[in-house]
Computed example of a mutant assay.
Amino acid sequence: MTTFRNFFAAAALTTVVAATPAMATTTVTGAIRFGANSTNYFDNSHGYVPAGYANATSSAVDASYGSGFGFEDAANTNTATFFNNALTIKDVSSQMGASSFVMSFTADAAGFFDHAVISYDTFGGSLSLVGNTLTYSAPATGLAGTRMVTIMFQGISAVPEAGTWVLMLTGFGAIAVAMRRQRRSAAPSVRVAFA
């Protein structure tokens, strides 16, 4: 009975490990482009990344909780932050006539942005997902102020990677061997003696 309990506990744990979003181990490359400008201002080499943002050394970040991209100039601050399987994009404009912008995010893990959906949006923008790249396009506005969008996504899909399959099968094999040994040791031994 104990072995069966251990078997199901191990199976449940393996399933949870296989299905958990690997946010901290997923690298996302981000880009922000304004209007018709092709420059990626999330790339720190252009000098527009404010202190404290994860893209302070490149245009890629680990998509861990609270990690994100930042852009800042004299008139505008744009941020994109990952938290709890959501991406929150925020634009703070101190001047009238903010231009349109496009933010795109490419994950190095397949399925990271699966089932992405806008749950809150004051931009009135549009969302698209092609392969591992999520793109949000925001229209221009004639007003100063703060705009924000929250995009919810599933994270890593529940289909385990090859390494997880190996680990899972090895665990099931070990449990099967333990159950077989226990069954053998529990079998009654019968001795027949003739006088």
Score class of each variant (00 low, 15 high):
158 A>D: 11
181 R>S: 08
184 R>F: 07
144 A>W: 05
96 M>F: 15
174 A>R: 05
52 G>Y: 04
131 G>T: 01
91 D>Y: 03
163 G>Q: 11
128 S>I: 10
103 M>F: 06
108 D>M: 00
165 W>F: 15
183 R>V: 08
183 R>A: 13
188 P>E: 02
132 N>H: 05
6 N>P: 09
47 G>N: 02
28 V>A: 08
6 N>I: 07
24 A>E: 15
18 A>Q: 05
41 Y>M: 04
12 A>D: 12
75 A>P: 11
128 S>L: 07
188 P>D: 01
138 A>H: 00
147 R>P: 13
53 Y>T: 02
54 A>Q: 06
43 D>I: 11
92 V>F: 10
62 D>L: 13
49 V>Y: 03
41 Y>A: 03
131 G>R: 00
118 I>C: 05
93 S>F: 05
191 R>C: 12
140 A>C: 08
136 Y>V: 04
40 N>V: 06
26 T>L: 02
96 M>C: 09
67 S>W: 06
2 T>D: 14
25 T>D: 07
70 G>V: 04
26 T>P: 04
37 N>A: 05
111 G>Y: 01
131 G>K: 00
153 F>A: 01
158 A>H: 07
115 H>P: 01
65 Y>L: 07
62 D>I: 10
187 A>W: 03
22 A>H: 11
3 T>P: 07
138 A>D: 00
76 N>P: 07
38 S>E: 09
72 E>I: 14
66 G>E: 00
37 N>W: 02
138 A>L: 01
14 T>Y: 07
68 G>M: 05
72 E>L: 15
122 T>E: 01
98 A>K: 09
159 V>Y: 13
173 G>T: 14
108 D>F: 02
116 A>F: 01
28 V>D: 01
14 T>H: 07
52 G>T: 03
52 G>E: 03
72 E>Y: 13
94 S>K: 15
48 Y>V: 04
177 V>A: 12
26 T>C: 05
137 S>R: 13
140 A>H: 08
21 P>Y: 00
55 N>K: 07
102 V>E: 09
18 A>V: 06
124 G>H: 05
130 V>G: 08
18 A>I: 06
59 S>W: 04
185 S>N: 14
110 A>M: 11
74 A>N: 02
76 N>H: 12
39 T>Y: 06
141 T>Y: 03
97 G>I: 04
192 V>T: 08
3 T>C: 09
123 F>I: 02
76 N>R: 15
25 T>H: 08
46 H>V: 10
153 F>R: 01
179 M>F: 11
56 A>Y: 08
74 A>L: 05
172 F>C: 14
4 F>E: 14
135 T>Y: 07
156 I>T: 14
129 L>Y: 00
65 Y>R: 11
157 S>K: 12
101 F>V: 08
129 L>D: 04
2 T>M: 10
77 T>D: 05
42 F>V: 01
29 T>H: 00
146 T>S: 03
145 G>S: 04
164 T>M: 14
176 A>L: 15
